[in-house]
Design a protein around this nucleic acid. Structure first.
Lengths: 325, 325
DNA sequence: GTTCCGTGTGTAACCGGTTACACACAAAGT
DNA sequence: ACTTTGTGTGTAACCGGTTACACACGGAAC
């Protein structure tokens, strides 16, 4: 490994001078700078981040904690974060928590041990004591909290939008799927839908689910139609479940959207590839990731006093699982 | 930040002793160990990885370089890698290259600068000089090479399997989609299909595509049916494109699988949620990730002399876009 | 009784950077 | 002529761990 010493020796200067050239601070003579640059390129030297990080007590790493990138909503968040932090010269330490508090704690410890400059987390456990004790800039993503800056989309509004659309499109027997109760955004959108439906003159029923996973989606879809076979509109807990319901409905010979209307949630990429294409509530996932990263970076750089939360708009995307009228 | 010094002071011993307790090496008296443990828990101390990493010249990080986790095939690889390296006490530095050589080089530099112990890469540029110069254990994932250990699935076999299945199921005018030419595995599966079809007595045509992205998938599907409207079987370049083709065919009023049979590639989770469910060639993505991590770790630990490559089997998954016979 | 060895502990060097501080020198100000 | 100031550079301390080495002690072997 070629170190700053090697470069200094080659250039015939001290390590301090090399460091000054590298970081472009302090006084360095033009000629000296030249010599140092030459030595650097000759050796193809790039400074050791670990040493730098030790002295500075901060690395150029940012910790990103997500529930599970296997769920298609999260890779988009992650890319948004990544693209933005890269631009600012940071890199990502990634962790999937699987909604397990233990994994979450382990990752947070890892982040701290590696001197990350900040972290972005989509956790359901902000209230845990470890977050209080955390001496790191933290931005919540896809989650809210009184105590920390957060970037999220308005779940209640999303739920409301979905419910409203279905009512306006003539749905009479709506079924609302309730997502896993430990996942906050799932409850927000659920509440939004319920609140709207409660004040309207429609019948609706609620079906609880306990996971968002691909493996279980089909099961929820089957359960839905066996329990509520006469439902004419479904507010799915997310797009994956929505697509599963859609295809189960087709399999049962129902016409979409004439017999059953369906609205998903998230607008994951594959929703526009389903058949028929899925109407859904769009969350701007990539943009959310970007904003969270941006916010974290301004906090790190202390460019702004106000560490405020950012709410991004949700949007009804009308495709072909809802009626046109 | 609480350091080893604080712990040492609290316990009334030297930092060396604390270090010995932490790492469980060297001689430590039972009583002394007790005192140190108490101090550690009292302060909730956890050692700084950066300092350790500097002296040891290796961190507990592993670099993972993927093309784009937004493509649903890769999150599964990533999770396989993550779960396996976590078990061995390592963490992931993640990078998306977008198939860009510049991003790739940047990430590799980052990995080196952070003293990662090894890296796993799904690159198309192993032949690049930087890989030669790389002084890190490297395992290729979803890619092959003469020069490095690799974990991959047999693309040619996969292509062959797909072609064979279609021929056996009575397809007469097969269209083979050729994936982006700079992506190696895309070419392997294409070659496998072509080789098989060439020796059989069937007509087939080839349609070239230049991307795997969601956004473009629909376009490829439309192009396919406008160019080859009478095709009765399609070997899609991957599942995303396969699903797009499937739905475009339905939109055009074709019956699946009676009029058109379709076989995808990868078996991403959403393939079993499509309608009709997509027949495909399954690559064991999660398992591939796990194996790659496992292989890398044995190399790091030098547990085995032989740094061999591992080929995982592909498998035809017959669902409802191919005929039953 | 002397030597030897296993056990237990501390001191200090080291990893590769960054930076406070000291110092040297030349040009400008008085 | 003498101080001041701006510029350029080196020395060494420091970041928080790990470990080589030195040393002390007690019991076993001779």
């Amino acid at each position: 490994m070629v170190t700053i010493k090697d470069v200094a020796q080659e250039a015939g200067v001290s390590v301090a001078t090399v460091s000054r050239v590298l970081n472009d601070n302090g006084y360095v003579g033009a000629e000296t700078r030249e010599k140092v640059m030459k030595a650097i390129t000759k050796f193809n030297y790039s400074p050791n981040e670990v040493a730098r990080s030790l002295y500075k007590r901060e690395s150029r790493l940012i910790g990103l904690l997500l529930p599970d990138i296997t769920n298609p909503f999260f890779p988009q968040l992650a890319r948004g974060v990544e693209d933005e932090v890269n631009q600012a010269g940071y890199r990502l330490l990634l962790g999937n928590s699987d909604e397990s508090i233990q994994k979450e704690l382990d990752y947070i410890q890892t982040f701290a041990q590696n001197n990350v400059v900040g972290m972005i987390s989509a956790t359901n456990h902000v209230d845990h004591e470890l977050y209080e004790a955390l001496a790191l800039p933290l931005v919540l993503l896809d989650r809210t909290s009184e105590d920390y800056p957060a970037v999220y989309a308005d779940g209640r509004e999303g739920g409301l939008l979905a419910a409203k659309a279905l009512v306006e499109k003539g749905a009479k027997r709506i079924t609302v799927m309730k997502g896993p109760s430990h996942i906050k955004p799932a409850q927000d959108r659920f509440r939004g839908a319920i609140e709207y439906l409660s004040q309207e003159e429609v019948d609706f029923s609620v079906m609880s689910t306990t996971s968002y996973s691909f493996e279980d989606a089909k099961g929820w879809a089957e359960e839905l139609f066996s329990k509520y076979s006469d439902t004419d509109a479904v507010i799915a807990s997310n797009d994956i479940v929505g697509i599963a319901i859609l295809h189960e409905a087709l399999r049962l010979g129902k016409r979409i959207p004439e017999d059953v209307q369906i609205i998903g949630y998230d607008d994951i990429p594959q929703s526009s590839l389903s058949y028929p294409t899925l109407s859904t509530i769009r969350q701007p996932a990539y943009e959310m990731g970007k904003q969270a990263a941006k916010l974290l970076i301004t906090i790190i750089r202390k460019e702004q006093e106000i560490e405020r939360s950012i709410q991004l708009p949700v949007e009804l995307i009308e495709r072909n699982t809802t009626r046109k009228e």
